[in-house]
Design a protein around this nucleic acid. Sequence first.
RNA 1: GGAAGGGUGUCCGAGUGGUCGAAGGAAACGGUCUUGAAAACCGUCGUGCCGGCAACGGUACCGUGGGUUCGAAUCCCACCCCUUCCGCCA
Length: 434
Amino acid sequence: MLDIQFIRDHADEVADKSRQKGYEVDIPRLLELDAERRTRLTQIDVLRKRRNDQAAEFKSQKPSPEQIESGRQLKQELGEREDELARIEADYIQLLKKVPNMPTDDVPVGTSEDENVEVKVWGDKPQFDFEPKSHWEIGEANDWIDKGRAAKVTGARFAYLKGSLVQLQFAIIQFVLDTLTDQELVQKIIDENGLHLLAKAFTPILPPVMIREDVYDQMDRLEPREDRYHIDGDDDNLWLIGSAEHTLGSMYADEILPEADLPLRYIGYSTSFRQEAGTYGKDNEGILRMHQFDKLEMEVFSTPETGLDEHKLLIAVQEYLMQQLGIPYHILLKCTADIGKPNARGVDVEAWLPGQGKYRETHTADYMTDYQARRLKTRVKRGDGTIDLVHTNDATAVALGRVMIGIIENNQTTDGHVRVPDALQKYLGGKTEI
RNA sequence: GGAAGGGUGUCCGAGUGGUCGAAGGAAACGGUCUUGAAAACCGUCGUGCCGGCAACGGUACCGUGGGUUCGAAUCCCACCCCUUCCGCCA
C-alpha cells in the first residue's frame, strides 16, 4: 500500500505511473473519499471529546436522569456518524489498496514484457558439433524425468525427478547455502559492486509453505487468486505459497525491529505451488513450467536508505551463482508493465537454453520499498528513536528446476550425458559427468 | 480431538467499571560521577490518525470483531493465536 500523504502531494504523478504499470485507479475519487473521511473524522472527534468530557464529569458527581438521557442521545448520534465513517473508510481502503507501488526513475516505461530492456549479457553460448537436445529428451533418456506416471497420479504439470538429477538438485542446494552463508564472500560481492552495505551473511531458513489469507493479502501477493491453491478446511483459511517470499516477507509483520538488527538477510528453501492459470498449451514439455517446484529464495529487510543497494546486492548474487554454474545468461530490466504491483523495480535473469534456442527466465529480483511493509506494519526503530517502515527485497537465488534445465542443455555431451559444473563437483562426490 | 490457563507498550510484567495510555522492572537515549569503563544516581522514553509552520491540541488503540453502559484494558458474545496436560501421530 502507498502512503496516502504521498498520493495527496503527488496526485498526477501517481495517476500517471499507475497507468504506466497497467493499473487504472481513480485517483480523484480516492482523494475525494480521503477528504470526506477526514472531514467526518474531525466531526466525530468533537463528539467523542464531548462524550469523554461528560463521562469525566459524571465520575465525580452522580449524573441526573436528564444528564444520562443527554449522554444517551450523544451516544446514538456518535454511533450513527461512526457507521457512516466506517462505510466511507471501507471504500477508501479498497481503492487505496488498488494503487500500485511507484516505479523508480530508471524503470523503462512499457506496455508488456516485450518492452523489458536487456542490460547485460554474460557468457559464451556453447557451440555443439551436433544438434543440441532439449532437457526433456535428455531427461527421459537418462530416466531422470517421468511425467507420464506423474500425470497418472497428480495430473499435468507434475513430474517425478529421479536418479542423478535429484543428486544434482541437492548439490545445488548445498552449494548455494555454502555460498550465501560465507560472510567473506558476501563482503567480496558487495565490494566488487561498489555497494554501501554491511557484510552480513545470509541466514538459511525453511519457511512454512502455507499462509493465512489476511497475511497473503497484506503481502499483496494473493492476487491473482486463480493462480493460487486454496486449502479447504473446516476453519482454516489457508493458501499454498507461490513462492517462499510469501511467508518470508511476512514473518516480521506487526513488529518493530531495532536498527542494529538490520539488514536481515535470509536464504530460504521451499517448494512453490502455482496453478499456472492462463498458460494452457504453453511449455507443456519438460519441467520448465510446473504446478510444484523447489526454489532457494533470498529475502532482505533493510532500512529505507539501503533498500536499493540491497536490491543490487541480490542481483549481484544471482549473477555470481550463474557464473559459478557456468550458465550463459542475460539480464532484463523489467518495464513498468512487468514489474508487478508492489514492485518499485524488478529485474529478470534469463538463462540461455540451447535446446530451445532462446533465453528463459530463471530468476527475478523484486524491490518493494516500503509498499509491503506499510500493510504488514514491519518497522524499524532508529538510533534516535524515530520509527520508519522497513524496505523489503526478495529475489530468486536458484529456481532448482529451471537452473537444472540450464545445466542439462548447456552441458550436454555427444552421447547424451551432462557435464557437471566445476563448482558442483565436490557436492557430487567428485563426479565430472552424470 | 478433550481439559485448563493466557494474549497489555521495544521486551518482561501489574492492572476486574470512571482518578488508566496504563504501575513496576529491563533495554535504549541524554546527563552527573569517573583517567576511562562498570556500578550508582537524575532525566527522557508507545504507535496511528486529524488539525497546526511549530510549540502543541484532539482522538483512537491493552489479540481481532461485535455487544452492554452516561463511561470498558476491566463485564458479555464470537473468532484468531499462544502455553500446559491428555489422546493421536511423522
